[in-house]
């Protein structure tokens, strides 16, 4: 589904990703772990197409297509979803209106008619309830004055209604208390299937207790230094990044 090969990325002349390769197949959950500044978030922005990142070398293939040829919205409509570490506040735009606009953008892309009001209401209600998002929150401006936990739940809500093929969760666990972490993880697990894949970016092993990955990769200084299964995450928790990077 996603094939990253020998990726080199720089920002304003400074190299951040230095030869990263990673393959994710349909139905797999990969965890990417690494210390601050190792290039985790950069990777998520490069995958989703944010401007300001210079791809110096390497390729990214997504469902057989060159991902780098696609605009941000084209990638999104092709099923790539990024749950932001810091979701944007958009004043004046009601959350439910935003959700509807996003759904209709995808439907338009797929040549489907706009979602009917009733269907939309039903869809949102069921998904929002599971995440503990009340109808009052859906009336508020998108992410404006949301708590950290509410913002992350909002990201997961968007993910569950847009049903991506490839979801990237960028430090979704940061700033969450244990209850919110559980709710958010359940939301992710519900979406897991043979048809879609996840790239879970995190600093801590904590999240992986809830979202069990098939593979764990450790990133340091812009490249993957070690890969393994879930036990690697446990090992990391025990030894810390420095040790693991050394043994790698």
């Amino acid at each position: 589904m996603l094939k990253i090969n020998n990726l080199h990325v720089s920002i304003e002349g400074k190299q951040i990703i230095k030869g990263l390769s990673l393959s994710i197949n349909k139905g797999e959950v990969h965890a990417l772990m690494g210390p601050n500044g190792s290039g985790k978030s950069t990777l998520s922005y490069v995958l989703s197409g944010k401007e300001g990142y210079e791809i110096e070398e390497g390729t990214i293939e997504y469902n057989g297509k060159n991902l780098l040829d696609l605009e941000v919205d084209e990638r999104a409509n092709a099923g790539l979803f990024l749950a932001f570490q810091y979701p944007m506040e958009i004043p004046g735009v009601q959350t439910s209106f935003f959700l509807k606009t996003a759904i209709n953008s995808k439907r338009k892309f797929l040549g489907m008619p706009e979602i009917d009001a009733l269907e939309f209401a039903k869809l949102i209600k069921s998904q929002a309830e599971d995440l503990g998002i009340g109808s009052e929150m859906l009336k508020r401006d998108l992410n404006v004055n949301y708590s950290g936990g509410e913002k992350k739940k909002q990201e997961i809500l968007q993910m569950s209604i847009l049903k991506p093929d490839m979801a990237i969760l960028d430090e979704t666990d940061s700033g969450l208390d244990i209850d919110a972490l559980r709710i958010v993880s359940e939301g992710v697990n519900k979406l897991r299937s043979e048809q879609n894949s996840f790239l879970v970016i995190t600093h801590y092993q904590r999240l992986l207790n809830y979202i069990k990955p098939d593979f764990v990769h450790i990133i340091a200084d812009g490249r993957i230094v070690k890969s393994g299964d879930f036990s690697l995450a446990l090992e990391l928790e025990e030894k810390g990044y420095e040790d693991i990077s050394k043994t790698a």
Partner: peptide, 20 residues
Amino acid sequence: FYCMQRGLNSEDAVGLIVNG
């Protein structure tokens, strides 16, 4: 960027943000 990551094209994203 956020809006476009959710699938809105750039025109729709501008329209949405300006309306907000």
